[in-house]
Design a protein around this nucleic acid. Sequence first.
DNA 1: GGCGCATAATTGGCCTGACCAATTCCCCCA
DNA 2: TGGGGGAATTGGTCAGGCCAATTATGCGCC
Lengths: 233, 233
Amino acid sequence: MKLEAVSVQRLYIQIAEQLVQLIRAGDIQPGQRLPSERDLATRFDVSRPTIREAMIALEVSNIVEVRSGSGVYVLPLAKESSLKASEDLPGPYEILEARALIEADAAALAAERMSNDELQVLGQLLRKLISEIDKGDIEAAEKIDQQFHLTIAKGSRNSALLATINWLWDLRNESQIATVFHRHAREEGSTPSQEEHQNILDAITRRDPAAARDAMTTHLERVVLNFHDYTPS
Amino acid sequence: MKLEAVSVQRLYIQIAEQLVQLIRAGDIQPGQRLPSERDLATRFDVSRPTIREAMIALEVSNIVEVRSGSGVYVLPLAKESSLKASEDLPGPYEILEARALIEADAAALAAERMSNDELQVLGQLLRKLISEIDKGDIEAAEKIDQQFHLTIAKGSRNSALLATINWLWDLRNESQIATVFHRHAREEGSTPSQEEHQNILDAITRRDPAAARDAMTTHLERVVLNFHDYTPS
DNA sequence: GGCGCATAATTGGCCTGACCAATTCCCCCA
DNA sequence: TGGGGGAATTGGTCAGGCCAATTATGCGCC
């Protein structure tokens, strides 16, 4: 029997996410100062170092600015920094469709622009991916898979594309991790993807943009099909 | 006399940046585990909470991965990333390139999915666009132009694509409104775009995805070319 | 009454030391 | 030789404390 790998997220992440939500919802306006660390500590019922870690996370993410001796303030762009309000988030199907299109574009560009070093990394990731799948560690394999795709996105040398693809993965991870779809994908969807990933890597290595695009499209459209088959309709 | 605005950076930033340098230089390879927090604390001669803050910063920046009870490990993509991920927003060229790719995808989908009502709206927008250009009101024309493009994005029936395209337009508007590029684009770039917009609309009306994609690509690639011509090199 | 300035209160920056839980290591025993 | 099972290591979190920067306060002086 497999236990739910809940693995409660670390506290600083929980707190940072709650604060981000408050900011996005408008409960805390840009420019406004949020409560002192000591105050937040008692409110969230955690220690001050934990609050402090959450602040670091928000600061590095350019969501707040920390002014020593004064307080921490919400930055102006904070509300939009993470694309779109949390209202009608795209569903898993829309995310997959968008990924199929955009990541295909990115793969084509990457085939032309990616450095040899990055290709090395890509090869390592693929080997690691296969080994994790063999070991049966699906969770680890999914992380590697994400890194594989993001490395390609980065290879496009276009930070707008990279940011977009990053966002789509975040969406997938945040909202949909426990759906029937993903559970199924974990069980069954891994095997063919090895070959598909290999095809993508080969195409990029050959510096063949069209082939890279096709390989990526094929890969993600199969995932879309998997999704269709197992969606409770 | 001007004093050095040293304002000693906070410790966690100093440490995080040193580690990033080590990673970039290859002294710490991706996949490798870096020293324990306690170890780093003594080496840098700071307390463990400070090291911990630096780790949080690196983790949020997708440079390392923290595995509880095991250690913190350098991620594969780490070599080229830096702290403050979103600090360097995409430049105008990157935005245009991304738009050319993504809006082309959206146009192709829109050709298949857009409702007739929306097509009507698109036609009205185009007429309005032409009339504003004739009147010489460039600013109004740009707003209409944006609506035209966003209506097509909406026609893709994919909220992830729509959100992405929305975000790219926001980026364009916010950060680059006063550059030489845009000033020039306002003066000269309007005339040919009338015909190009018409081509896009026609293709969608004909329900021809490939043509819609091509028309959108052509349109935006010309803008890219304009950009190239007038970029101060 | 209004203006300045010194002092007090608040706030972030950082440290020490400690305990817990997860992971890994390693030795000993079957 | 192959497991098993502590013991050591490592991250996760807490408590409480001191310092420096910033801000608020209030008192005296004009």
